[in-house]
Amino acid sequence: MFTDIQKRLAEREPKPLGKQRYFSVLLPIIMVAGVPNLLYEVRSQHISQPGETSFPGGAVEAGETYEAAAIRETMEELNLPFDCIHILGEMDYIVSDQVVIRSFVAELKDVQLEDIVCNEEVEEVFAIPLDYLLTHKPTYYTVSTKLEHPENFPYELIQGGEKYDWKSGHQAIAFYHLENHQLWGYTAGLTARFIELLKLENPIE
């Protein structure tokens, strides 16, 4: 029995508990006037979260790796060939009770910002110089969440009953204050984390 248990555990990849949906995004670095920039999308009006800023990305399909999903979604949304996307590595990722979002950093090779022709999911693209992000920190605003229980919740089955000390949740949401675009939430959080990682090493050349 123990050998069988060991075999089953060895054959699977550990995952977060729950019924999360799996997504992957790409943080694309593009050269603009000889300066490295992070590329962002503005979501079109006929998809979810219309008008919001995001990185290229989407749901991971069955049998697909997170990295392959990030590349595929970027190719589709920005109409780029595979050879233009040079993966530099994987960054930190997001886990919540609803989603898992893995993130990858890539260089867009031989791509001009003004030549990008987006598909119908993207309203426009814009770029922010890394130098700007390295010198302008986001502002964080904390929101709180509170558990609400249904009327038939079985308080009698837990120690303390209705007086049980439930923990409330707190989440810090990042906002970058830009003149012409919005940048907040998961996208801002991934941006801030990427910039933090750059600052941990020697200045980029």
Rank of each mutant, 00 (worst) to 15 (best):
135 T>W: 09
111 V>F: 00
126 F>I: 15
122 V>Y: 01
119 N>G: 10
109 K>D: 02
115 D>N: 03
127 A>I: 06
133 L>T: 07
118 C>D: 00
125 V>E: 04
116 I>S: 01
118 C>V: 14
114 E>T: 15
108 L>S: 06
125 V>Y: 04
117 V>H: 01
121 E>D: 03
108 L>P: 06
114 E>I: 15
140 Y>F: 12
130 L>K: 02
121 E>S: 09
129 P>A: 02
114 E>W: 13
105 V>G: 05
122 V>I: 15
131 D>T: 12
137 K>I: 05
104 F>T: 06
140 Y>C: 03
123 E>V: 04
135 T>V: 08
135 T>S: 14
111 V>D: 00
113 L>K: 07
110 D>R: 14
130 L>S: 00
121 E>H: 05
109 K>N: 08
105 V>D: 02
112 Q>S: 12
106 A>E: 12
105 V>H: 06
124 E>D: 10
128 I>M: 14
133 L>K: 08
111 V>Y: 03
123 E>H: 07
108 L>Q: 07
129 P>E: 06
116 I>H: 07
130 L>N: 04
113 L>S: 11
133 L>S: 10
134 L>F: 12
105 V>T: 09
109 K>E: 06
131 D>H: 11
103 S>H: 01
123 E>T: 05
106 A>P: 15
133 L>A: 13
123 E>Y: 10
127 A>T: 11
107 E>A: 15
116 I>K: 01
134 L>P: 14
134 L>H: 09
134 L>T: 08
104 F>L: 05
118 C>L: 09
123 E>F: 05
135 T>N: 14
120 E>I: 09
108 L>T: 07
107 E>F: 13
122 V>S: 07
106 A>F: 03
118 C>F: 03
113 L>T: 13
137 K>Q: 11
119 N>W: 04
140 Y>T: 04
103 S>Q: 05
109 K>I: 10
125 V>F: 09
128 I>Y: 13
119 N>A: 11
105 V>L: 08
138 P>T: 00
137 K>V: 02
135 T>Y: 11
120 E>T: 08
122 V>R: 05
113 L>W: 07
132 Y>I: 15
113 L>Q: 10
113 L>R: 03
135 T>M: 10
127 A>R: 14
123 E>P: 01
120 E>S: 11
138 P>G: 03
133 L>E: 11
107 E>T: 13
110 D>W: 12
109 K>A: 08
134 L>N: 13
137 K>L: 10
117 V>D: 00
115 D>H: 03
140 Y>P: 02
138 P>H: 01
119 N>E: 03
128 I>G: 13
130 L>G: 00
110 D>V: 12
112 Q>I: 06
112 Q>M: 07
137 K>M: 06
122 V>M: 02
117 V>G: 01
136 H>W: 04
109 K>W: 04
140 Y>K: 08
112 Q>G: 05
103 S>N: 11
